[in-house]
Amino acid sequence: MIIETRNLTKTYEAGQEQVHALRGVDFQADAGDFVVINGPSGSGKTTFLNLLSCIDLPTQGEVLIEGQAVSQLASGSLAEVRRDKIGLVFQAFNLIPVLSTFENIEYPMLLKGVPPKERKEKVNQLLEEVDLVKEGSRRPDQLSGGQKQRVAVARALVNDPVLFLADEPTGNLDSKTSERIMDIMKRLNQNHKVTFIVVTHNLEVNEYAKRVVYIRDGQLTEEQKR
């Protein structure tokens, strides 16, 4: 089991009101899974993914990554879990503007202290896999949306995470570009044997999934296996 959640609960305090964004979610994913999470806007998908990414902590319940409960970890150890085990892709790409394509992909390896030669090899290999060899020295503002998201995908995989998480990765892309990104992700999922969990409300994406999970009102309501 790569990732597991137990009774995962998140309640936001919004003024006087409480927003129950997640109401006790039990979820599991195995190595190499490709899970798509569907659900209407406001149903709790981002909240769920934030908890899986270890950038937010649950009100109740637990996230276990490779069997390790993460909610008790100190901030520094949590950062190491994110750095070493998790690859993240955002809807708005979130590349570092002052770094080139190459450097953006390299960044997580530098955090980890990977030696230069190994870094170079790994980045070049990923640049090839996402078809950006020629764009290596460009800054993000010189890239198209699709190119930026491919950089982000490569960056997410560079430290060989066990878990690849993406929150609406095609939300800012046109349908043709989206398809390309999804194809690349599908291929990388097969090549890298990483567990992919992708949030989207784009139903076309479902055809890429090995599993589709629905979130409604903070609850995991259905699951459809393929």
Binding site: S75, A79, N94
Partner: peptide
């Protein structure tokens, strides 16, 4: 701030 959120999410520690 958003860039800080990004690099923190990627595993950069607060002291870094």
């Amino acid at each position: 701030t958003r860039e800080v959120g990004t690099i923190r999410a990627l595993g950069t520690k607060t002291n870094q």
